[in-house]
């Protein structure tokens, strides 16, 4: 059990999402930066899809009710009883200790995983909070001061007792996730169904630098820039969508649907972001500039493979180090 003793609004319990129910209108939800959540879970010895806490407002503080492994990744700086934890790090917390997480410049969301995972009741196969549907996670709502979160049972590994960290994905895979010198994030996408109906404006979509508007949240990001419009107005029939779809409402400024995306849409779609780049948007704050780069299915596969290898490397290395530590400790 852990107790939330301080939290900003909109911090929620998330796993990798409630997939398989779009056909009855249920939003997937899940971590905005699934890569960071997976790493945090691997560090504490969980399956990569266990439920953790997604933090988007700070500071966040919890008190531990028992000894447990805790890892903090993504955009979160952590201290345990006032002592700083290195970034992307797992450590053992003792009963009564307090974990505080503060923001990291340049990142939008921090992730906290606990050994055994946050063990709230799964709803439709997932522990993710669906704020819109008001179910899942903690009573279907954001965390509040005083919340008591149940944790699953899990042994505390030698790894957590000693403390162990990994290189953050942006550093480990710099060449795969390019950022222009002025800080513009390059996001790879494929042209979507109505791309060509935008005529010359389609090229302006790819060429210009867009800015993430302050009206952006887990549901979607609005982009600010020179409006783009289809050559003639179109009304689509409602159809299923996925996170990463770039829709263009009549005003001409695109919207990117994110984790809490609607399951259906009807705006013309100019592009769809390659899934491997979605976590980078999940870490992009309002005001960040993005530019879209035309990608291919082949490139998307290569990126997925690189991310799988990165996670596999963490899994293998952490298990190897844990075994070595156990041997040294004479068990």
């Amino acid at each position: 059990m852990i107790e939330v003793i301080d939290t900003g609004p909109l911090n929620t319990i998330q796993d990798l999402g409630r997939t398989g129910f779009r056909d009855i209108g249920v939003t997937v939800s899940g971590a905005m930066d699934p890569l960071a959540l997976k790493v945090a879970n691997l560090l504490v010895g969980n399956e990569e899809g266990a439920a953790g806490i997604e933090l988007q407002t700070f500071p966040f503080r919890v008190r531990f009710g028992k000894e447990v492994a805790v890892a903090v990744t993504g955009g979160g700086n952590a201290t345990l009883d006032g002592v700083a934890m290195p970034p992307w790090w797992v450590q053992t917390a003792q009963a009564g200790q307090i974990l505080e997480v503060t923001p990291v410049a340049g990142s939008a969301r921090g992730y906290v995983a606990f050994g055994g995972g946050v063990d709230v009741e799964p709803v439709m196969g997932s522990r993710s909070t669906s704020l819109r549907g008001a179910f899942g996670g903690m009573e279907g709502r954001a965390l509040r001061k005083g919340d008591l979160l149940p944790l699953g049972d899990a042994p505390v590994s030698e790894l957590a007792m000693t403390g162990f960290g990994v290189v953050a994905p942006m550093l480990e895979m710099t060449s795969l996730f390019p950022v222009v010198e002025d800080g513009t994030v390059l996001i790879r996408a494929l042209p979507a169904g109505e791309h060509d109906l935008f005529g010359a404006d389609a090229e302006r979509f790819w060429r210009q630098t867009w800015k993430i508007s302050p009206q952006s949240d887990r549901t979607g990001y609005r982009l600010a820039g020179d409006p783009i419009r289809p050559v003639a107005p179109v009304e689509m029939r409602s159809h299923g969508i996925v996170a990463g779809v770039v829709q263009v409402p009549p005003a001409g400024e695109p919207i990117i649907q994110m984790s809490d995306a609607n399951t259906a849409g009807g705006y013309p779609k100019i592009a769809g972001i390659v899934e491997a780049d979605l976590w980078r948007l999940g870490q992009a704050r309002a005001g960040i500039r993005v530019r879209f780069v035309r990608s291919s299915h082949a490139e998307a596969r290569a990126l997925d493979k690189a991310m799988t290898d990165y996670l596999e490397d963490i899994r293998a290395t952490s298990q190897m180090v844990a075994r070595a530590l156990k041997t040294i400790a004479g068990h």
Partner: peptide, 26 residues
């Protein structure tokens, strides 16, 4: 967002033959 995905735009887009297009990579 919710409201806008339901708002109305010009004329209905009627395809003459089956149209298959990607949304992202998967």
């Amino acid at each position: 967002l919710q409201s806008m995905t339901r708002s109305s735009l010009g004329s209905p887009l009627v395809r003459e033959r089956v149209h298959i297009s990607p949304i992202g990579s998967r």
